[in-house]
Nucleic acid binder design. Structure first.
Lengths: 205, 205
DNA sequence: TGGAAAACATGACGCTCAGCATGTAAGTTC
DNA sequence: GAACTTACATGCTGAGCGTCATGTTTTCCA
């Protein structure tokens, strides 16, 4: 057995805490928000309901913590991949691909579940808004670093357009839309973005 | 009292049925899918649980019927507004506005709730997919009629890009994102679309 | 090394839910 | 207008939910 190790209290705490949060994310992805129960989370995290009670006073608090956990993960992943981008037009296309990859993965699926649930749950909403805004800002900074020659205002536009388009496509993917069409649309958008990028850098107003 | 009227059986049936479906949509919009219970729906529709039992064998069936009811409404509304569009570049911009209006209203909010729920509910998913595809196709036809000078392939691209972008923006709106930024993004997209439209019509390959 | 404190497990409580069995009223048919 | 069918109401049941009170184990510290 691997259970013979002596763990410090802080380690124990941190370990079951992240286990619970990861299990929560798994639940959101696999069974959806509506059917994500504390019991199911506990079963997946291999802990008892008393544990979650000890760490979080209520289910809402667990969800709020899951939001932060989730956003932190997404942020880390996006930051890593965005740092190794080339500049110029090919960089723009690559950045769009990365944004799509980031916003269409399982992590983002969980985020969408929480987003939609948050619409009618003020508490959850209050928890989501700040961290999501922070994620957007941080990602935007990375992107603008890549496309430095572009006027920041236009770079921001391109970024947010890409993000929102990507979220729409992610929704389509969740329901089992045609993957080929999504790829076509993404390719078309990349073409458009590169075009706009070149226009803007060639003829700065 | 207004209750003295003699209603035929078909009328009674249809009346409570649509009352139930409308109440379901209201529930989805106001309290969200996760907390939409049969009891809540009955309370809003002013009928008993026995009634819904009589009309739909299970809750899933009610939801499936709600999907169709919802899509029919959306389709009707979009068709009406899209028919009175001007042609040319201004028509493109106007069409984008209409699509945004259609995909950001309360009806579409309910659709989003069902979409996200359907991701982890095969039964609901099976009910949604065909009607949603039909809605997309029908709307696309109306749009391509408006922008007839464009090669149909490119018109379709523009349409689906707009739809997906709009859905992403609608999600942002649901969580209380900045309305001004959404307007800016939509305006920017309209500018881009008109530009692309003019390029394509001026220099057909 | 023993007691305090933190981390976690167990079991029970009140509540809501979806589904069903049964009863009643409204419309239809002859 | 009486038998019959359809439309709807009422009450119940078992299951699952979140939360809480109380035990048990593990780590810490003096």
């Amino acid at each position: 057995m691997t259970e013979t190790t002596h763990r410090t209290q802080a380690q124990r705490r941190e370990q079951t805490r992240t286990a619970l949060l990861d299990a929560t994310i798994d639940c959101l992805v696999e069974v959806g928000y509506a059917r994500t129960s504390v019991q199911e989370i506990c079963a997946r995290a291999r802990v008892s309901k008393g544990a979650v009670q000890h760490h979080f006073t209520a289910k809402a608090e667990l969800m709020a913590a899951a939001v932060e956990h989730l956003t932190t993960k997404l942020r880390r992943r996006l930051a890593e991949s965005l740092d190794e981008l080339p500049g110029g037009g090919t960089g723009v296309a690559a950045a769009i691909d990365l944004l799509w990859a980031g916003y269409s993965g399982t992590l983002s699926t969980a985020v969408t579940e929480l987003w939609v649930a948050a619409r009618t749950d003020p508490e959850l909403r209050a928890a989501i808004r700040p961290v999501d805004r922070a994620l957007g800002r941080a990602t935007l900074e990375h992107v603008t670093q890549v496309a430095g020659e572009l006027p920041p205002e236009r770079a921001e536009m391109l970024f947010w357009l890409t993000v929102n388009l990507t979220r729409g496509l992610a929704l389509d993917a969740e329901l089992g839309g045609d993957p080929n069409r999504r790829r076509q649309l993404l390719d078309e958008w990349k073409r458009i973005a590169v075009l706009l990028y070149q226009d803007a850098t060639a003829a700065p107003s």
